[in-house]
Design a protein around this nucleic acid. Structure first.
Lengths: 337, 337
DNA sequence: AAATAGTATCAGTTGGATTGATGTCAACGT
DNA sequence: ACGTTGACATCAATCCAACTGATACTATTT
């Protein structure tokens, strides 16, 4: 048999009280139980942990070595117990989520950061993949939640709409279209060179699909795999590009890029949260979903989540929600008026 | 009942194999045992750790949170076990020693440092006290070993002689006696001012006792409680002092102070190692005692333990001892000839 | 529909942990 | 010197948690 928690507990009690008898009282056990448990532990560890002269027990060097270590271990266990036991209250655990490119790069990092700051015992891992892979991972249970753009067609999943993202034409502030307030199709199309994502990107596909018969007018000068590279290229004047507002709002706010809506064309697309149909929803998952809901409800979908104070106001909102949901536990209301 | 090591072990096995059945094979248990243990753990922790769809078990967020923590705990336990179990081989534990002033300040720190560097799993705490307190602490078992100067008169203790320390007269290099090779009594006594330790110091007592009838000739200009202060005072020319070689060898080697033996008078005193009569001698204690023995045997008692390369040669000697004592375990001899 | 391969659960057994009683030893008081 | 006290160790008996073997249940595969 191996060494036991109980044995460590008993060992610590004896070491601290310096007596088997006192320890037994503290532990509400008989003296003999303590004595035997201690003996057993000493057996397991191949030698005594105390020096015994007459009626006194004193830690020897091995015991002194063991004492802090065993205390540390028991503390850790106690921590685990309290954190995992109190599903009420603390939000704890490790959530695995997957997200498609735009969301994963430009939205979730901020949200995850904010969420984890508010719940230190929680941890969220994110994997950025394409929509299909995301579906698969959520369907097989390897991920708890997915955040995607495209439509879903796996029936083991349920998808709830999150918020709408909008695509826009971006040009550098020195571009000849920078002065315009909208992008007109097909007029402006002819005179523009384009920087595109490589095939397989949701953003690029939507763009060409929406263009329909005008798609043939696209003069593509560069294709690249990374959104950041596209932004850099556009910024340096290579051409225009079609990207999600989420990806470029920061640069637009700073004035480095200009965003043009396309006249007469709805360039919005729905973002979805997907989860397994019959997966049990844990406290942490529920909390994160609620957080995401608040984000969506705040109409911040169309605003820049990367700017600190908008995120801040978001957190306020979330916290208030949190308070009100806790007020059922008897805490007083916060009425500052 | 509380959560168990075994449960954590089983939990880890299941998490890693992703199956109760596979885990049960790995653990050499029945499938039902594993299933029940897992169920019990989930009970203890107030909720599931896995998502169960059909025949597959997948960690949920709580489980993912628990997994690394429980692994860490089991590792710690395994460490404790191996370190404390293999009394053969590794020297581990925490040794409490007490030492009187001179030894504690000028000898043991170096030895302890060297020893702990050679035995990373061992730790030695030292307390510097007077001889009487040292006796008491060792007698009551609050300390494992004592290193003292005076004679011992508690019969629960055994004292073994360690090495001889020598007292010498120290003067600054610019002192009028600095050119002499010895200190002559009583001639030189008349013309010298003295810096002394306050009463209660072993060193000061020995000096006056040895002087006997000449003690009245001492012109004491300063008394101070700290050896370092005495050295500083002597260095700056206030007067001469009588101190242990151990305390001043470094300054003497550097030429900052001059040491004069007293002509025709044996100024050596015995240093002792004391331990409780019937305390069990653990591996660590034995090892440290052997180390101290080597130090004494090296005749280095009269040399400066603070100088790096002397300590180095000491370590070599100790290591060779160590090798030869291990050769009984079947390792080949080291014969480099 | 049957076979397969996994999990959960039940009743029975075993062994470690606990108890209560007893033995032993050292410290202390008379 | 002797008995008393207060501590630890040990023994036999008990109890309960952990394990086994069998069975029921469920999802997947054929």
């Amino acid at each position: 048999m191996a060494i036991t928690f109980r044995q460590l507990e008993i060992f610590i009690a004896v070491a601290e009280t310096q007596q088997v008898t006192r320890a037994s009282k503290k532990l509400i056990l008989t003296q003999s139980a303590v004595s035997m448990a201690l003996g057993e532990l000493e057996n397991q560890l191949g030698g005594p942990l105390f020096d015994r002269h007459g009626r006194s027990l004193l830690l020897n060097d091995r015991g002194r070595y063991l004492l802090p270590l065993s205390k540390a271990i028991l503390h850790q266990v106690a921590n685990i117990e309290t954190i995992l036991t109190e599903q009420q209250g603390v939000v704890a655990g490790v959530l695995e989520i997957v997200a498609s490119s735009t969301i994963g790069n430009y939205v979730l990092p901020y949200l995850i950061g904010a969420f984890m700051r508010m719940h230190p015992e929680a941890h969220i891992n994110m994997l950025v993949v394409n929509t299909m892979t995301a579906e698969k991972l959520v369907a097989t249970g390897q991920a708890d939640l997915g955040f995607v753009e495209g439509d879903i067609n796996v029936d083991a999943l349920i998808a709830t709409s999150w918020f709408e993202d909008e695509l826009g034409i971006i040009v550098s502030s020195t571009h000849k279209l920078a002065g315009h307030s909208t992008f007109k199709i097909p007029e402006d199309l002819k005179e523009t060179s384009w920087v595109m994502r490589e095939e397989g990107s949701g953003t690029a596909e939507i763009f060409t699909k929406k263009l329909g018969r005008h798609a043939s007018l696209l003069k593509v000068v560069t294709k690249t795999g990374h959104t950041e590279a596209i932004k850099k290229a556009v910024e340096s004047g290579v051409g225009a590009a079609c990207l999600s507002m989420l990806a470029v709002c920061r640069e637009a706010e700073e004035g480095w890029l200009k965003i043009l809506p396309i006249e007469g064309m709805d360039m919005s697309r729905q973002l979805w949260i997907i989860q397994h149909k019959d997966k049990i929803i844990t406290r942490l998952m529920a909390e994160f979903l609620r957080f995401c809901e608040v984000v969506a409800a705040s109409h911040l979908g169309r605003e820049c989540l990367a700017s600190p104070w908008k995120l801040q106001s978001l957190l306020e909102k979330y916290k208030i929600d949190q308070e009100s949901s806790r007020s059922s536990e008897g805490s007083r209301d916060i009425t500052d008026e």
